[in-house]
Each structure stands twice: as C-alpha cells, then as structure tokens.
Nucleic acid binder design. Structure first.
Length: 681
DNA sequence: GCCCCTCGAGTTCT
DNA sequence: CTCGAGGGGC
C-alpha cells in the first residue's frame, strides 16, 4: 500500500510539472497523448484506492490555469470535458453504465461529430454576443471576445427564424444565454496558414487544432481575422429556463438562431445504431472540410441527462468515441542505431508516442541507411506513420511541408554505438555491420536467438534476463548458459526462486534437442531454420558438418557457394570450435535422430504433395499448429504465395497474401473449409 | 544470364 | 509482414 501511495504521489508531481509547462509556460515537454496517459494512470490508481484521493490531486480539477494576457471569466456552469472511449468495447461499457444507472428507461442517444478544435463559450445578452470565453481549466477561461468576433459563422446578433411546425419554439433569445461549441480551423485555411508561415520562415502548425488554439490566443485580432476560423455549436444554457427536451431540439434551436452545428447527426436508439453511425462517419471523414477525431454520443433526453448527472469532471450522460487512427503524424525525436545479433546496425526512428490503430507507437525501424536517405528522415521532422496490413508500424513519408528550417541529415556512425568496434559495409550491400567479435549487443542477440522457440526453446530467457547476464559478465557466450551458477541467477533482479528453477529446467531440457535446433541456434549466417534442418538430416552429426569440405556442404539442397563458405568460415573460427567443445562437454546432443517414417496414410490424403500458404488468424489453432498439421498429413507449407502454391488458407484479417493469391489465381480455403478437409482425412 | 521461389533477418506492443 | 538476397531452374 505504501508503494501505491508513492506511485500516486509521484504521478501527481509529474502531472503538475507538465501542466505548468503546458498551460503556464506554453512549452510542453511531452505530447498531449502522453499527458493523457499519465492522467489516465493516475485516475485508475485513484479509482482503485479512493481513500488516497486528495482534493489537490490533478484529477480533481479539469485543466490548467489561464495564461496571462487575457481577462479571466468564471464560467456560470463548469465546462466539463468528456470521457473518452477508445474502442467499441469502451463505448459498450458506457452504454451499459447508462442503462444500469437508469433502469427501465428507454434510452436514446444523439450522436454528432467530434470536432478537433477548441471549446468556446459565447455569452449573449438580449440577442447580442457580448463575450467569448475559452474553456480554460473548465471553471475559468480567458476572454477572447475580439478574436471570436472575427469568425464569420459566429452570429453577433442572434437570428430568430420561425420554429418548424413540429419543433418546440424553445426559449426566446431575449434574455441572457450561453452557447457552447467548438472553434475549428478548416483544412483549407490550415494549409493556407502554414504555407504563408513557411514563406515567412516561421514554424508551421502541427495540426489544425493547434493552429486554431494558437490563433484564438493571439493578442492581435487582425491576425485572427485573416485565419478564417469556423465555429460549430453544440450546447445551450439559458438563464432561468429549463433545457430543451432533447439534445436534438437544442441543435435545431441553434440552427434556427444562426449557428452551424455538426453536419452529420443521428438519433440512435441503441448501441447497434451508434456503431452504424460511427462506421458511416468513418467513411465520410476524408470528405469533411475539417478534422474530426471521433463522434460525441449524448443521452438525448434532457430529463435523463439530469438524472444521470455528472462527476466533478465529466458528465455521465455523454462520451467521446475516438477513432483508432489508421495513420498518424508525429515528430521524430531521435534516430537511434540498434545492433542486432549479426552485428547489423539498424537505424530506428523514435518519435513522440501516438495512438495508432489501437496501440501506442513510439518507434519504427528505418531498416538501413539507404532507406533513411530514400525517405530523407531527419531528427525534428514530422512523419506520417501507419500500420500496413500487419501490426508493425512504418514510416511512410516525411511531411516535408512541415519541416521547420534546416535539419541535419542523418549519418550512420562509423563505430559501433554499443562497443565502439569498427563498422564495415560491404560494397553493394544495404546493411553495415559491427565487426567486433566481443560486441555485447551481438552477444545479447545471439543468446536470445539461441534461446528462441524455434532454436533451443529455453523459455524464461528473455531480454531483461539476458541484459543482466551479459552486463554483469555472467555469460560471455551460449555455452555459459550450461555452466551458470544457480545461486548467482537467483540473486538477480526480478528473479525469484521459482522462476530460476523453471529457467534451469528449461536449459537442462534443451540439452537433448535434436541437432537441427542447435545448428539453427548457433546463428551461422545464412543458416536459418530450414537450412539447419537440411544440414542436420544430411550429415547426422555436428562433427560431420564441421569436417565437411565445401563441396560436400554444397551438395546439400539449398546450400550454394555463399552459404557453404559461411558455414566453413564459422567452424574455421577457433572460438567457435571451442564453443562446440564446451557444448559437447556440457552434455548437449550433437546428433540428429533418424527421420521419422512418413506418416501413415499421409500419401493419399488431400494434403499429400500439395503446397500450402497460411495467412491471417485462425480461430481453432495457431498458424504453427496448422502448419504442423498440414506437414503431418504430407503437405508442404511455405511462407509466400506463388504459382506453385496449391491452396492459400485464410484466417481472419488476412493481409496482402490474399490479394496476391487472387492475382495469381491460387485457390483459397477459408478456415471452415480447411477444417473440413482436415476432418475428411 | 534472367527470373521465380524461398529462405533469412529484422521488427512492435501487450 | 516485408524486404533483400541466395539457389536453382530454364
């Protein structure tokens, strides 16, 4: 419990620091998204430990303090922010919560666009706009009336077109009332503003929302007038009057009085209708003249809203659904250089974390110096990133229009960033490699590779442990794994007795694995899983492979001059020969068992002699299991679709392979058909 | 010598 | 999953 209290206090300190940087100093150190994540974590901890919530916690107020330069206005009613739903699941939870709080009521929702701008409160007296106030910290905002007056879609005088026949007329515009909405910068204006800022050698705005926020807080209203902002209204508070019966009524009232409101709105009776609307809006997003980042969902009936009420920070009757972005833009903070097990130096872009398709992404490989040059990525650049058909994010392009001034080009280091060893890039090859035999990064990579599932399958030997073993000098090569001292390992960080026992059991069991796993695990260049299997099967024992002259090696399937030379060079290396001797001494199996007889009945099965490719996620089994099953029935499984492929087995979310199969006219089996064929045998 | 097929290698986040 | 590159068929 003491730990949790410490965590909470640490988080609060951190959040207060960033709030100050953001709201007061106007020089944030972290992205909005990271800030949100900190806040979320604090909220979760406090929710789990309500006794630790204090009134001065950052969660107990809505935002920051107004900056100097503008008058401060205290909102008549706090401008709350909305709770966010980052997935349909979270939206479902919202719906369930609402229905649970007001059981038996027929709940309908009003859904509209969630503009990516800044909230604004407009005060009207006798129909005249007298004051415009930013949201500020939710309680007090900045008075920016002169700036907002320049926005053409903000009515300075309320119109009062007649009510439609079926709509209630609503309150008169005569008294004091407040209209709430969002100031946005349309994309066309955004492009124009950034173009002229670049011409004037000023840093362009990162996105329309920042541009709108920056503009509204400009002290010179003439500048604001030139920026063409827009205003969309979504809320109405009338002094001394009850709210209109529903949110949709409010929107109609606002329209009739001269305000723009969300161009897409729908009344949704249930979750399914909400999901349909969300899907619909997603499709239309590219055609909208402004940026949105989601859909706002509100309980439509004012009476039910009142019954649901609000917490100190957010109303319980509304939620903002945010789309998982398929693409995102972010800023490159750093280009790191990683060293892999083969010594390959890989440049990696590290950027401001962004939410991309449901997960937070903070880095993406740039593969090699060639790719860095092709993209022309530089530290400080804004880049467009996406997750293609798969999970792995990639940098699509640099947004050169947002490059502020001159940025230095990336240069590959001439020495290994980990060990300082010499780096060599052979003529005509894309990758540069660290040449040092003792590079810790290479050692860590080889250990992880050795322990990987398809090699020696030592579970529990992960990155964290390998780091410790190497950094503490306990392991200097794979052979040391078999001579490690149990007590030393138990003493390592985050290593309990039980985990150490499991680890040693795994290491012990690995001694008996067949030769092909060891051969693969050694990490000889160009000898992957398959080549290792072919070699092990042909030579039967490690000594035979080591002793084989190059011609013999080349007689093995899929081994040509390059691979043969690589194997020869590996075993010519004295330290590698010594390694083999140590492994032998440690009692490792250095032989390959005789190939098992062909599976009974395999020859006449549907699968026998045919080539299969698997893609997507299968529900009934993993892809590996499916591959084993096919092989057990006499089929072959390969990784890529070609004309020789007989069938492509597709699971859910199939990627590019399906398209390729269709292009080549390769037959496709869906999971149901595949399982059917399996049963038939 | 060209082209197709595979294999190898690197990779993100939860 | 994708890219680069080795092997081997034609």
């Amino acid at each position: 419990m003491g730990d949790i209290r410490k965590d909470i206090e640490g988080l609060r300190r951190e959040i207060r620091h960033h709030e100050h940087r953001y709201y007061v100093l106007d020089t944030p150190e972290i992205s909005d998204f990271e800030f949100d994540q900190l806040m979320r974590r604090l909220q979760e901890l406090e929710a789990a430990h309500p006794e630790l919530v204090t009134p001065d916690s950052p969660t107990q107020r809505v935002g920051g303090e107004p900056a100097e330069g503008f008058d401060v206005h205290v909102h008549a009613a706090p401008m709350l922010s909305l709770d966010n739903a980052y997935s349909l699941d979270e939206l479902r939870e919202f719906d369930a919560r609402v229905r649970k709080l007001i059981p038996g009521e027929a709940v309908a929702y009003a859904a509209e666009l969630k503009f990516d701008g800044l909230s604004m409160s407009l005060l009207y007296e006798n129909g005249r706009m007298v004051k415009a106030v930013t949201r500020g910290d939710g309680l007090r905002g900045e008075v920016v009336t002169a700036n907002i007056r320049t926005i053409r879609t903000v009515p300075l005088m309320l119109e009062a077109r007649g009510a439609g026949e079926r709509e209630p007329a609503g309150p008169s515009a005569a008294g004091r009332l407040e209209v709430r909405g969002e100031v946005v910068m349309p994309l066309a204006s955004f492009e124009r503003v950034n173009r002229s800022r670049r011409e004037a050698d000023e840093a362009p705005f990162a996105n329309p929302r920042n541009a709108a926020a920056g503009t509204v807080r400009t002290l010179d209203a003439r500048v604001v007038a030139g920026r063409r902002l827009d205003f969309y209204a979504y809320g109405l508070l009338v002094e001394g009057a009850a709210p209109l019966p529903t949110h949709l009524d409010t929107l109609r009232w606002l329209n009739r009085h001269g305000f723009k409101t969300s161009p897409l709105v729908r009344e949704c009776a249930d979750l399914a209708a909400l999901e349909a609307f969300i899907e619909d809006v997603r499709g239309r997003m590219p055609d909208l003249p402004f940026e949105i980042d989601g859909v706002v969902v509100k309980v439509n009936a004012a009476a039910l809203q009142a019954r649901l009420g609000a917490t100190a920070k957010i109303p319980r009757w509304a939620v903002a659904y945010k789309y998982p972005a398929r693409q995102a833009t972010t800023r490159v903070l750093h280009i790191a250089v990683q060293v892999g097990r083969t010594g390959a130096l890989t440049p990696v872009a590290e950027f401001d974390p962004v939410l991309l398709d449901g997960s937070t992404v903070s880095r993406a490989t740039l593969h090699n110096p060639e790719e860095v040059r092709r993209l022309d990525v530089r530290v400080g650049d804004w880049v467009l990133i996406e997750k293609g058909g798969d999970v792995i994010p990639k940098v699509v392009q640099v947004i050169t229009s947002r490059r502020a001034g001159e940025l230095p080009e990336f240069v590959m280091p001439e020495r290994c960033p980990v060990c300082g060893g010499t780096v060599h890039r052979p003529e005509g090859e894309a990758v540069a490699r660290c040449e040092s035999a003792d590079c810790p990064a290479k050692l860590k990579g080889s250990l992880l590779h050795f322990a990987s599932r398809r090699a020696m399958d030592i579970q529990g030997l992960g990155e964290a442990l390998v780091d410790q073993l190497v950094d503490k000098g306990l392991v200097a090569g794979v052979a040391d794994l078999y001579t490690m001292d149990f007590d030393t390992v138990v003493a390592l960080e985050r290593m309990g007795r039980k985990s150490a026992e499991n680890l040693f059991a795994q290491i012990d069991a690995s001694r008996a694995h067949p030769l092909h796993r060891l051969l693969f695990g050694l990490g000889i260049r160009f000898v992957g899983e398959r080549t290792a299997q072919l070699l092990a099967r042909r030579f039967g024992a490690l000594d035979a492979v080591m002793a084989a002259p190059e011609e013999e090696l080349r007689a093995t399937e899929e081994v040509g001059p390059v691979v043969a030379e690589s194997i020869r060079a590996f075993f010519a290396e004295p330290r590698n020969r010594a390694l083999v001797e140590r492994l032998r001494a440690a009692g490792l199996n250095l032989a390959e068992p005789e190939a098992p007889p062909a599976p009974a009945g395999g020859e006449d099965s549907f699968f026998a002699g045919k080539t299969f490719v698997l893609t997507g996620t299968l529900a009934a089994m993993s892809r590996d299991e499916a591959a084993d099953t096919i092989r057990a029935r006499g089929g072959t499984v390969t990784g890529s679709v070609s004309k020789k492929t007989h069938y492509l087995v597709v699971g859910a979310d199939a990627g590019s392979k399906l398209a390729r199969a269709q292009a080549l006219g390769v037959a496709v089996l869906d999971e149901a058909a595949f399982l059917e064929k399996l049963k038939a045998v």
